[in-house]
Structures are given as C-alpha cells and as structure tokens.
C-alpha cells in the first residue's frame, strides 16, 4: 500500500452532462515510469491536471505519496513533492534562464517577508548544466526556442527535488533526435533520483522505450494497463487508433 506513489480510485470528471473521465482506477508504484496514451480527447490532459490539483475531480479519491490529495489545489500538491511539466512549456518568459531555475528551487518555502529582504538567489545550476542550458543562463526565457523551453521547464521541475513528476507531452515540438535525447535524459534522471513518472505522450517510440508500463485511456475510461509489449500487440489498441482497418493491415503485412 505505502509503496504506491499515485493512486486513483473511482475518479470521475464531469462538465455539466458530459463525462471527461469515468470511473478511472490507476495505481503507479514508487519508482515506476507509467505512460498514459490514448486518442485525442480521451481525457489524458484532464487526468494529469486533476492529479496535479489544477482541476477538481467530480467524484473519487486521489492519493499521492501516501496522502489523500483529492481536494488539494496545485500549490499544496506541488509542495508535497509533485513536479509538473506542461504540454506547452510554462516558464517565466520575462525572467532569465538562471532566475527561472533559482525561483523554481526556492519559491515554495519563501515567505514574502524573507523575499523582500534580499536580492540574491543562490541557485543550484547543476540541473541547468544537465539539460545543456548553462551557457545561456542570462538569456530571457521568452527568447528560447520551443525545445529549449521544455528543457528549461524540466530543469525547473527537477531542481525542486520532486518524488513524483507528472509530464504532459514532454517531447512535443521536438525533432526525433531531440525527442530521443530527451527520453534518454528522463530515463537517466528517473533512475538516479528514484523518481516516479506519469507521462502523457503521443510519440509512440519514446513511450514504448521509456515506460515501464502503459495505461490506455479511451473516451475518458481506462481501456487497459500493461507492459509496453503487451499493450503494443493488443488488438484493441489498433482498433482504437486506426479503426478496424488495422486488422486488414495486419493481414496484408
């Protein structure tokens, strides 16, 4: 029980009459890399957002790192040790790369009173170095290319030493080369720091290479959860993504 980093039980999300998520059960063990895939509109983003506390679930229970976080907002969840990266990288455009990381490291425990007394940040720049952005620390974050923004965001997430990280399409907008490097980086970091990752992705190569296990979400409901090989060869997956033409495809190979 206490080995689980993320637990979702009977989770629903309703918007008016529509169900964005229905009866979702999810269990992710500590140290596991769980992939979350599914067609567009399946509810992946809603699920991530709900776990991170940005959006309240209509029904059900959420447990993170042993705490009941069902009613928690994003700030509380973050302070528990949950990191978050977004599909469109959310960084502080007006501040420099270095300031972004410094803030990420210190802001959670920084009261306004302490903050007003000093100008100096003492950032740990090792994560910037790890993602290769150390040379551009003075550049305003708004001037970075999209892929670099995602790397900056990653550094910002990691500098807070989270235990769980919820990532929304970490390789979106990257070339296949960049995506592979990013995936490799994630794998290394997760192993080094014993992180639990929940990754939503559309890039199947990355997903199947990186994840320990994968959950498939369709129409707001969990279709299956299993090891990558299992999921990849599951008939239902092909149907979901490609329609029943998939069977024909298989036959003609």
């Amino acid at each position: 029980m206490s080995d689980n980093a993320i637990e979702l039980h009977a989770v629903d999300k309703q918007y008016g009459e529509t169900y964005a998520l229905r009866d979702v059960e999810l269990t992710v063990q500590t140290g596991e890399i769980r992939g979350l895939i599914g067609p567009n509109g399946a509810g992946k983003t809603t699920l991530s957002a709900g776990i991170a506390g940005e959006v309240p679930f209509t029904r059900g229970r959420v447990r993170l790192l042993g705490h009941d976080t069902t009613r928690w907002n994003a700030r509380r969840v973050a302070r528990l040790g949950v990191g978050r990266s977004f599909q469109v990288a959310q960084v502080f455009d007006e501040l420099s790369v270095e300031q972004n990381v410094a803030l990420a490291a210190e802001v959670a425990g920084l009261s306004p009173l302490r903050a007003v007394l000093s100008r100096r940040w003492s950032p740990d720049l090792s994560h910037l170095e790890r993602v290769g952005l150390l040379g551009r620390r003075e550049v305003p974050a708004g001037e970075l290319a999209q892929a670099d923004r995602k790397l900056l965001e990653l550094a910002m997430v990691l500098v807070g030493e989270p235990r769980v990280v919820v990532l929304d399409e970490p390789t979106a907008g990257m070339s296949s080369q960049e995506a592979e490097e990013c995936a490799e980086l994630l794998r290394e970091l997760a192993a080094e720091q014993e992180l639990t990752l929940l990754i939503t992705e559309h890039n199947m190569n990355v997903m199947f290479r990186l994840a320990h296990s994968i959950t498939v979400l369709v129409g707001g409901e969990v279709l299956l959860t299993g090891a990558p090989e299992q999921v990849r060869t599951d008939r239902r997956l092909a149907e979901v993504y490609f329609g029943s033409d998939a069977e024909e495809e298989e036959a003609t190979r």
């Binding site: 940005e54 700030r75 977004f86 959310q90």
Partner: peptide
C-alpha cells in the same frame, strides 16, 4: 500556472 505548480 507555473508559479502554482512550483508551490508558490
């Protein structure tokens, strides 16, 4: 959004 996600 980012600020909240960092625990600010």
């Amino acid at each position: 959004r980012r600020a909240a996600a960092l625990g600010a």
